[in-house]
Computed example of a mutant assay.
Amino acid sequence: MKYKISASILNANFLRLGQEISEIKDYIDEIHLDIMDGHYVDNISFGPDIISLIRKEFSDITLDTHLMICNPDKYWHTFIEAGADILVFHKEATQKAYHILEKIKKSGKLAGISLNPATDINQIEPLVDVIDRVLIMTVEPGFGGQSFIKPMLKKIEKARKILGDNIDIEVDGGINNNTVKDAQKAGANTFVVGSHIFKSSDKIAEIEKLREILEH
C-alpha cells in the first residue's frame, strides 16, 4: 500500500503561499485544501478562487480538496471546475451523499467522504462502490493545531476492515511524528499534515522525518 502525505495549507503563510508550496511540493504527495464556510464549522478559510490560482501555478500537483461546508450538493462542481483532483465532503452535511459521489466520479475526479469523530464508521458501508477515499477526522473539524483523538484509532481499524485495501483511508488532525505511526498501524495510508509542517523552521526536514517513520 502506498503511503501519502497531504500537506494542509491551512496553517501556511498566505502572504507567501506560492513560495510555501514551492518549498515542499517535491517532497509531498498532495496539497490539502480545507474549505470552510463558517456554517458547517465555526471557521472561514478560502474558496474556489484560491484553488484556481494554485492550480494555474502548480499544474502538476494533486489537489486534495476537503469541503467542510453546508449543502455540498450545490457547490461540488464549482470546486471541480476550480481544479480539484480529489473532492471530499462530509457525510453529516447532506442526505445526498451517494448522488454527489456518483457525480464527482462521473466528472473524472476522485470522490471521498469525510466523517466527524462522533459519526459511526458503519455509515460508509453503503457508499463503498462510489468512493475512492474516506477521510476520518481525528480532531473536531474547523481549526488546525488540535491534538489527535486517540480513540479514533479503533475507527480507522474498522474502516480498513470495511473498505479493504483498494480505498484510501485519510486521517486529518494532530498528525505529527508522535501520532503518524499509530494511525498507519491502524490502517491509514494518507496523512494530512498541517501545522507540523508549516509551523516548522525546517519544513523539508519534518516531511523527511515523517517519511522515515512511515517506511520503518
Rank of each mutant, 00 (worst) to 15 (best):
K185G: 03
V192Y: 06
G164L: 06
D129A: 06
L210F: 06
L135D: 04
A186D: 03
R211M: 07
E208L: 15
I169V: 08
P151I: 10
L153R: 09
K203E: 00
L210S: 02
N178G: 14
L163C: 07
D168G: 08
R211S: 14
L214Q: 09
P151H: 12
I124P: 00
I156L: 07
I131E: 00
V193F: 00
V192N: 10
L210I: 15
V130E: 09
T179Y: 04
F143T: 12
R160G: 00
V139P: 04
L210D: 03
D129I: 02
D202V: 11
K161C: 10
T138D: 09
G164D: 01
T190C: 12
K161R: 15
D168W: 01
K155M: 04
N122P: 04
I197H: 03
Q123N: 15
I213A: 04
L135V: 10
L163E: 00
S147T: 15
K154C: 08
L214E: 08
K209P: 08
T179V: 07
E170R: 06
N178Q: 14
A186Y: 03
S195F: 09
Q123M: 12
K158L: 12
K154E: 11
R160K: 14
S147R: 15
L135N: 07
I175K: 07
D129S: 11
G174N: 05
E212S: 13
G187V: 03
D168A: 12
I149P: 05
V193Q: 01
I124N: 00
K209V: 10
V128H: 04
G187I: 04
